[in-house]
Amino acid sequence: HESKLSILMDMFPAISKSKLQVHLLENNNDLDLTIGLLL
């Protein structure tokens, strides 16, 4: 999960990174759901 998140972070600009982190917190680190929201 950690490395997947790092790769994902590299793919998005800074603003999207903050949104990603907020979504991860709100969704209890449900990375798949977060990716779904961003794609």
Results as ranks from 00 to 15, higher is better:
Leu31Met: 06
Met11Glu: 05
Leu25Gly: 12
Gln21Gly: 07
Met9Val: 12
Asn29Leu: 08
Asp30Cys: 05
Glu26Met: 06
Ile35Thr: 10
Pro13Asp: 01
Lys17Phe: 04
Asp30Val: 03
Asn28Leu: 08
Ser3His: 12
Leu8Met: 02
Phe12Trp: 03
Leu24Trp: 00
Leu24Gln: 00
Leu39Ala: 09
Thr34Val: 12
Leu33Tyr: 12
Asp32Asn: 14
Asn28Gly: 13
Leu38Thr: 02
Asp30Gln: 06
Met9Tyr: 10
Lys19Tyr: 04
Gln21Trp: 04
Lys17Pro: 09
Phe12Gly: 00
Lys4Ala: 08
Met9Leu: 14
Asn29Gly: 13
Ser3Glu: 08
His23Glu: 07
Leu5Ala: 02
Gly36Glu: 14
Asn29Asp: 09
Ile15Lys: 07
Ile35His: 04
Ser3Val: 05
Leu25Ala: 14
Asp32Thr: 06
Phe12Met: 03
Leu37Gly: 12
Glu26Ala: 13
Leu33Phe: 05
Gly36Cys: 11
Leu24Lys: 02
Asp32Pro: 06
Phe12Asp: 00
Ser16Val: 05
Glu26Cys: 05
Val22Ala: 12
Asn29Trp: 13
Met9Ser: 12
Leu8Thr: 02
Met11Ser: 04
Leu33Ala: 13
Lys19Asn: 14
Val22Gln: 13
Ile7Glu: 07
Leu8Gln: 00
Glu2Asp: 08
Ser16Trp: 02
His23Gly: 04
Asp32Trp: 03
Leu33Ser: 11
Leu33Glu: 13
Leu20Cys: 10
Ser18Met: 08
Asn29Tyr: 11
Met9Pro: 00
Leu38Ala: 04
Asn28Tyr: 03
Leu33Trp: 04
Glu2Val: 06
Asn28Ala: 11
Lys4Met: 15
Ile35Leu: 07
Ser3Trp: 04
Leu25Gln: 14
Leu33Thr: 12
Asn29Cys: 13
Met11Val: 03
Thr34Arg: 00
Leu24Ala: 01
Gln21His: 08
His1Lys: 15
Asp10Leu: 04
Ile35Ala: 11
Lys4Asp: 14
Leu20Val: 05
Leu37Pro: 09
Ile7Pro: 02
His1Cys: 15
Leu39Ser: 14
Asp32Ala: 08
Met9Arg: 11
Asp30Leu: 02
Leu31Asn: 01
Asp10His: 07
Leu5Pro: 02
Leu39Cys: 09
Asp32Val: 05
Lys4Val: 04
Asn28Lys: 14
Asp10Ala: 04
Ala14Trp: 11
Leu38Gly: 03
Leu24Ile: 00
Leu39Gln: 15
His1Pro: 14
Met11Asn: 06
Asp30Thr: 01
Asn28Val: 03
Leu39Trp: 10
Asp32Phe: 03
Thr34Gln: 01
Met11Arg: 14
Leu37Ala: 13
Gly36Thr: 12
Met11Gly: 02
Ser6Gln: 12
Val22Gly: 10
Leu39Glu: 15
Leu20Gly: 01
Leu39Val: 11
Glu26Gln: 07
Thr34Met: 00
Ala14Gly: 12
Leu37Arg: 14
Pro13Gln: 02
Ile15Leu: 09
Thr34Cys: 09
Ile15Cys: 13
Leu5Met: 11
Ala14Met: 08
Ile15Glu: 11
Asn29Val: 05
Ser6Tyr: 15
Leu33Asn: 14
Thr34Leu: 02
Val22Asp: 10
Ser16Gly: 06
Leu39His: 10
Val22Trp: 07
Ser6His: 04
Leu25Lys: 08
Ser18Arg: 11
Glu2Gln: 14
Lys17Gly: 06
Leu33Cys: 12
Lys17His: 09
Gln21Ala: 07
Asn27Pro: 00
Leu39Tyr: 12
Val22Phe: 13
Asn27Gly: 06
Ile35Gly: 03
Ser16Lys: 08
His23Asp: 03
Glu26Arg: 11
Gly36Phe: 07
Leu38Asp: 09
Asp30Ser: 06
Glu26Pro: 02
Asp10Gly: 09
Lys19His: 07
Leu20Thr: 02
His23Lys: 04
His1Val: 15
Ile7Cys: 15
Ile7Met: 13
Glu2Cys: 15
Ile15Arg: 04
Met11Gln: 09
Asn27Met: 06
Asp32Tyr: 02
Leu39Lys: 15
Leu20Met: 06
Ile35Ser: 07
Leu25Ser: 11
Leu24Val: 01
Gly36Ser: 14
Asp10Phe: 03
Leu5Cys: 05
His23Ser: 11
Leu33Met: 12
Leu24Gly: 00
Lys17Ile: 04
Val22Cys: 14
Lys19Glu: 10
Gly36Asn: 10
Lys19Val: 11
Ile35Lys: 14
Leu31Val: 15
Asp30Met: 14
Glu2Gly: 08
Met9Glu: 11
Ile7Ala: 14
Val22Met: 12
Asp10Ser: 05
Leu8Pro: 00
Phe12Val: 00
Glu2Pro: 11
Lys19Ala: 10
Ser18Val: 15
Gln21Asn: 15
Asp32Glu: 10
Asn28Trp: 03
Lys4Gly: 06
Leu33Gly: 13
Lys19Phe: 08
